[in-house]
């Protein structure tokens, strides 16, 4: 008898259901993300992409189903240790208005198990800002003084500050011009490869999908309709995926949801 020696997927979602009142957002979502790979989930607005992502982090509690991270049930064991494995770039940046940029980036490094002396935390923050293409003079400015693109970069610097194993990107290019979107996409790809992190991104932006993804999953009607390598995106033969990636109004996906 042989035993399967392959490592468990970094993230596995089994039959996730979530409803908000009568709105059944997730209806048995199954998804598996292998270690060190970059998965991009696409789908229309309101199809539950953010709900899926937040369910993994425990920000939203699924009504049914199970989520495993590195083979263990998500949320079991020490919560801080669990969350310390993740970094997340939020759609709007979600930077703390009351803190200067460097304290936003070093937030996790100034408290809890990963706490460092202030000088060291600041030095790491400035290094991470440099990594995302921002100069050190940004460190002492406040988020409100930055452009949307700079805020995204600061959010990205914060997401990678503690060098997490898993990074989530929630609509990383929303609200940015095409050039800045390209810059952010390239940064995400470089950083994920360089850190060897597992990445899960949700987006509508097809240029992001092609720049960031190893694997693409399409979420529609609360379930994964298609999953496969990014190279197969254009030859999938799946009518839902074809309609979505070509932005057609006609097709199986209703334009008015």
């Amino acid at each position: 008898m042989t035993q399967d020696q392959s490592p468990p997927p970094m993230i596995r979602m089994d039959g996730i259901h979530k409803a908000f009142g009568s709105n059944r957002v997730l209806r048995g979502m199954d998804l598996s993300i292998s270690r060190g790979s970059s998965m991009v989930i696409i789908g229309g607005s309101g199809t539950g992409k953010s709900v899926a992502l937040k369910s993994v982090l425990g920000l939203i509690k699924p009504d049914a189903g199970a989520i495993y991270v590195d083979g263990k049930p998500a949320g079991s064991g020490d919560r801080d240790a669990f969350l310390a494995r993740f970094g997340m770039l939020f759609q709007g940046g979600a930077l703390f208005d009351s803190l200067p940029v460097w304290k936003n980036v070093a937030f996790r490094l100034q408290r809890g198990a990963l706490k460092r002396p202030a000088d060291e935390a600041r030095a790491i923050a400035i290094e991470k800002l440099r990594r995302v293409g921002l100069k050190s003079d940004v460190a002492d400015r406040f988020p409100a003084e930055l452009s949307g693109g700079m805020q995204k970069r600061v959010g990205l610097a914060r997401a990678i500050a503690a060098e997490p194993e898993i990074i989530f990107f929630d609509e990383p290019t929303t609200g940015l011009d095409p050039i800045m979107s390209g810059v952010i996409n390239d940064l995400i790809r470089e950083i994920v490869v360089e850190m060897g992190a597992t990445a899960m991104t949700i987006t509508h932006d097809m240029s992001s999908v092609r720049a960031i993804a190893d694997t693409v999953a399409m979420l529609h009607d609360g379930v994964i309709k298609w999953v496969g390598p990014v190279a197969d995106l254009d030859q999938s033969g799946d009518p839902y995926l074809d309609q979505f990636i070509h932005g057609r109004a006609e097709g199986p996906i209703e334009a008015v949801r």
Partner: peptide
Amino acid sequence: TMKVTEQIDALVTLST
């Protein structure tokens, strides 16, 4: 405002 701009969620993901 922190809630609607996801800053509260960000706090949680930063183990706070």
